[in-house]
Write a protein that binds this DNA or RNA. Structure first.
Lengths: 243, 243
DNA sequence: TAGTGGTCTAGACCACGCT
DNA sequence: GCGTGGTCTAGACCACTAT
């Protein structure tokens, strides 16, 4: 019954997560690691692995000598910054059915800053993809992605660009895979163009992510800017002492 | 000072971190887990524990089947959001000698929102501590902390409040210990007061952290707002796919 | 003092990458 | 095929909390 993918500890994690959100642990107390190991027929190390992941997600917390407990405040956090991958998922987590509106697929020559960020030469052709994410009819996120044309297989139709998230587009139209983003969080006052697209007044304060996406070899693949409607999507994170 | 008992894996972690930043691994390749375990005389699990922490910090990355490598881009990130605890440390990491200017220590009655956030009654007395963090002569961070007076031991002098970071103040003047913050990231246009304190024009876009600090029992202890000079301090994070 | 989480060991097998 | 990191086991002892 053990399927090697997902891993045993991930199965344990999912199982426990379900019981946690289902309210199975009424007092907020989760059984001891030994008990869980015995009950689920796995080793304690595997249980600990699953619990560590849940703790990191903020779903539980542990007190040495005392026990493991449900972390109600952590459970209520929806948009956890470190875990964002696809904006569609973020919006779905907010309880809306997201849609995507394609604004622009274009090419342009790389300027100096972009060339440096993507590790290409100044003047190299770059594909620009601009999209708007909406929940119901409300625009929430405006994204602009820039990818070196060299990176993409020749045939990138507007439909392809519109129908797939960027990370999947790279899977289907290149041999590069996005591994992680290095993101800078920037406060902006919306330009009149951005404000119009997002349906708010020009000059409204907003958050933007200025980021570079890397593949697993740490080679830059994409440069992206995402701008958010602060009144509809606000980010939360948990900060802990690390020492 | 610091650690009465650093665990073996933390010692291994520190050791490896030193060698990494010291450039001992010239090719960027870190020895295999088996080799490290043999070399350091510990089990492979302990080495893996240390490497996992380093990977999480962004110092290294691993490729299954290939090896473990130094993550140069990750090493260069100074202000990692998840790891912020004391702003003085953040500024020190930026290469400046930070100073703190006390603006205000005051008391006020809790309004409805604050009472709810801190789990106290409306009208209960709250201590307000307002500080400015500077690097050299430039103001960088403006913070306002609110703590229920009940939480603090009676004698809280202005000097105490000024000389210690809030988390340490709680250690010395209460029996509560800050365990983590739940932080909301908010874009703002600086008010004229904030702008004056931070030495920029009113209306300048800025980031603010709206946060509640909890102790390890998940009881709220402090409500804080921190506002940043975007031109001097910009936050970065690494976003990864978690599935 | 009993029970819990925190750390560590020694060994095993698997999935993946390189060459 | 070989070496790497990824997962899992079974058992041990320690540090801390609660009672």
């Amino acid at each position: 019954m053990i399927s090697p993918n997902p891993s045993l500890s991930d199965q344990v994690k999912s199982h426990l997560k379900q019981r946690i959100v289902g309210g199975d642990f009424e007092e907020g107390r989760i059984p001891s690691e030994q008990d869980l190991a015995a009950e689920l027929g796995v080793s304690r190390a595997t249980v600990r692995d699953a619990l560590s992941k849940l703790e990191h997600e903020g779903a539980i917390y542990r007190k040495q000598g005392a026990g493991t407990f449900v972390n109600q405040p952590g459970l209520q956090i929806k948009s956890r910054l470190e875990e964002i991958w696809s904006y569609e998922e973020v919006l779905r987590d907010h309880g809306y059915e997201p849609s995507v509106k394609m604004l622009r697929v274009d090419t342009e020559p790389a300027d100096h800053a972009l060339a440096e960020d993507l590790g290409i030469d100044v003047g190299d052709t770059v594909v620009v993809i601009e999209k708007l994410f909406l929940e119901d009819a409300e625009p929430v996120v405006l994204t602009v992605n820039r990818i070196a044309e060299l990176t993409l297989r020749p045939a990138l139709s507007l439909e392809d660009a519109a129908s797939e998230p960027v990370f999947r587009l790279l899977e289907t139209h290149s041999d590069r895979r996005l591994s992680y983003y290095v993101t800078e969080i920037v406060p902006v006052a919306l330009s009149s163009y951005e404000a119009e697209q997002l349906g708010v007044a020009a000059g409204t304060p907003a958050l933007a992510f200025d980021e570079i996406g890397f593949d697993r070899d740490n080679t830059p693949v994409v440069r992206a800017t995402s701008t958010f409607r602060d009144d509809l999507l606000r980010f939360r994170l948990i900060r802990r002492k690390t020492d």
